[in-house]
C-alpha cells in the first residue's frame, strides 16, 4: 500500500510539471500585460520599469525557474492587478466555489446515480427511455443556456429566486442546477452502462443462483462493483466544478474561482492565471490521488497488489 501511494505521488508530480510548463507558455502568448495595466499614455521608460519590477524582462527559462521555485515553496506569485498574493486571492474565492461545487455534486448525485441504477435494472423499459432522454438533454443543453433560461423563468417571470450573487440557500439553487446538470447526465450514463456490464457478469448470475434476495443482488453485489468507475468520475467532476465553473460563475455573478480566472485572463494577469491553474492542477492531482487510494480501499485487487 505504501509503495502504491509513493508510485502514485510520483506520477502526480510529473503531471504537475507538464501542466506548469504548458500554462506558463500559454499565458505568455496572450500578449504584453504591461500595456493593459499601465495608465494610458505612460512613458516607455515607465513601462520598462514595470516590466523589470514584474520580472518580465528576463528570458522565459529564467522566469519559469523562478515561478517553479516559488510554487515549490508555496508562493504562487503576486497578482499584477490586485497587488496581492495569488494564493490569498484563491483561498478568498475558494469557499464560494466549493459551496457551489458541492451543491452541484449533490444535485448530480441525486439525479444521476438513482436514475442510472433504475435505467439499468429496468433496461429497455419506459424508465430506461426516460433516463435516456434526461441524459441526452443533460449532455446537449449547455449549462449557461439552462442558467439563462432559469433566470428568465424563476427570477424574472416568477420572481421566486434571486438572479445572481451569493447569499442564502435560494441563491445556490439555480447555479448549482446549471452547473450540476451536465454532470448528472454523465453520471447517469456511466452508472447505467457500468451497472449493465456488472449485471451481465457471471458473479451476478451466481449471486442469483444462490437465491439471494433481489435487492441484495442489485444493491450489494452489483452496485458496489458498478460504483468504481462512477466514483472516479464523481471525484474528477467535483474538482472540475470547483475550478472550471467559469461560465456559470460569470452568469450568476458568483464570487468564485472561475470568475477570478476569467478576470485574470482578460487583464493578462500572468501570475493570477498561472497561479489559479497550478492550484487547480494541484487539487485535481490530489483528488485523483485520494480517489486512487479510495479505490484501493474498495477494491482488494488494488489494495493488496504489490
Amino acid at each position: 500500500m505504501t509503495q502504491f501511494i509513493i508510485r502514485r505521488t510520483f506520477y502526480a508530480l510529473i503531471s504537475l510539471f507538464i501542466l506548469s510548463v504548458t500554462i506558463f507558455a500559454i499565458v505568455r502568448l496572450t500578449g504584453d500585460p504591461v500595456t493593459m495595466l499601465a495608465e494610458p499614455g505612460a512613458r516607455a521608460e515607465d513601462l520598462d520599469r514595470l516590466r523589470a519590477e514584474w520580472g518580465l524582462d528576463r528570458s522565459w527559462p529564467v522566469q519559469y525557474l523562478t515561478f517553479a521555485k516559488n510554487v515549490f515553496t508555496g508562493d504562487l506569485g503576486k497578482s499584477f492587478n490586485y497587488q496581492m498574493p495569488v494564493s490569498t486571492l484563491y483561498f478568498q474565492r475558494l469557499p464560494a466555489s466549493l459551496q457551489l461545487a458541492l451543491a452541484a455534486t449533490f444535485i448530480s448525485f441525486i439525479i444521476g446515480i438513482p436514475a442510472g441504477l433504475i435505467s439499468a435494472v429496468k433496461v429497455n423499459s419506459a424508465w430506461d427511455n426516460a433516463g435516456k432522454v434526461v441524459a441526452l438533454f443533460g449532455l446537449a443543453v449547455p449549462g449557461f443556456w439552462l442558467g439563462l433560461v432559469m433566470i428568465l423563468i424563476f427570477s424574472v417571470w416568477l420572481g421566486w429566486l434571486p438572479t445572481s450573487g451569493q447569499g442564502g440557500i435560494l441563491h445556490l439553487i439555480m447555479p448549482s442546477v446549471a452547473l450540476g446538470w451536465y454532470f448528472a447526465a454523465s453520471l447517469l450514463r456511466l452508472t447505467r452502462s457500468s451497472m449493465l456490464e456488472v449485471m451481465r457478469s457471471e458473479y451476478i448470475k451466481l449471486a442469483r443462483l444462490k437465491g439471494l434476495p433481489g435487492y441484495v443482488v442489485i444493491a450489494v453485489h452489483a452496485f458496489k462493483n458498478a460504483l468504481i468507475p462512477v466514483l472516479t468520475l464523481a471525484g474528477i467532476n467535483l474538482v472540475v466544478m470547483i475550478n472550471a465553473g467559469v461560465i456559470i460563475e460569470v452568469i450568476f455573478a458568483w464570487p468564485g474561482i472561475g470568475r477570478l480566472l476569467y478576470e485574470g485572463i482578460f487583464q493578462r494577469d500572468f501570475p493570477l492565471v498561472q497561479g489559479v491553474v497550478i492550484q487547480a492542477g494541484i487539487m485535481i492531482v490530489l483528488i485523483n490521488l485520494t480517489i486512487d487510494i479510495l479505490y484501493a480501499y474498495i477494491d482488494p485487487r488494488i489494495r493488496l497488489a504489490k
Partner: peptide, 19 residues
C-alpha cells in the same frame, strides 16, 4: 435456488465477485 438446487458455472475466474 441455493437452498434446494445449486449451480456451478463454467468460468471460475468470473463467477466470484471480486469485491
Amino acid at each position: 435456488r441455493g437452498a434446494q438446487i445449486a449451480m456451478i458455472l463454467q468460468d471460475p475466474m468470473a463467477s466470484l465477485n471480486p469485491l
